[in-house]
Deep mutational scan, measured.
Amino acid sequence: LTVHVGNVTYHFDNPEQAEEWAKRMAKKYQGQIHVKDGQFRIE
């Protein structure tokens, strides 16, 4: 699973971990989480 934050990409084996990280990053950067094809993108 991949989480994109700006132009930085993080890889996770565990979906719960990826989702948790995406939520934390979205809160930190006050962005929206977009989920597409098993990838999380924070914008």
Rank of each mutant, 00 (worst) to 15 (best):
F12Y: 01
L1C: 15
H11V: 10
V8R: 14
G31P: 01
E20G: 05
A18M: 05
V35Q: 06
E19R: 11
Y10C: 11
E43Q: 06
T2L: 12
K36P: 03
K23T: 06
R24F: 14
A26H: 03
E20M: 08
V35H: 06
K23G: 05
G6Y: 10
R24E: 14
Q39Y: 06
G31D: 04
Q32K: 11
D37Y: 01
A22M: 05
F40R: 00
P15A: 11
H11Q: 07
Q17S: 13
W21M: 04
Q39A: 11
G6I: 05
L1Q: 10
K23I: 13
H11A: 07
H11W: 12
D13I: 09
D13L: 09
I33P: 03
E16I: 11
A18G: 07
K36Q: 14
M25K: 01
V3F: 03
K23R: 11
Q39N: 10
D13E: 11
V35Y: 15
E19T: 07
D13C: 14
K36H: 11
E16N: 11
I33W: 07
Y29A: 02
L1K: 09
G31I: 12
F12N: 00
V3P: 00
Y10L: 03
D37M: 01
H4V: 14
W21K: 00
V35M: 12
E19W: 15
Q17L: 12
D13H: 07
H4D: 03
Y10H: 04
Q30K: 14
Q17G: 06
H11E: 07
A18I: 03
H34V: 15
N14W: 06
D13M: 09
Q30W: 06
W21C: 15
K23S: 05
D37I: 02
M25E: 05
A18W: 04
A22I: 07
R24G: 06
A26P: 01
G38P: 05
Q32C: 13
V35F: 15
A18L: 06
F12I: 00
F40G: 03
N14F: 09
F12S: 00
A18K: 02
T9P: 04
G6W: 09
D37H: 02
G38C: 13
T9V: 14
T2M: 09
G38Q: 02
K28T: 03
V5T: 01
P15S: 14
A26C: 15
N14D: 14
K27L: 13
A26Y: 05
K23Q: 10
M25T: 03
Y29F: 09
P15G: 07
Q32G: 04
L1N: 15
T2Y: 08
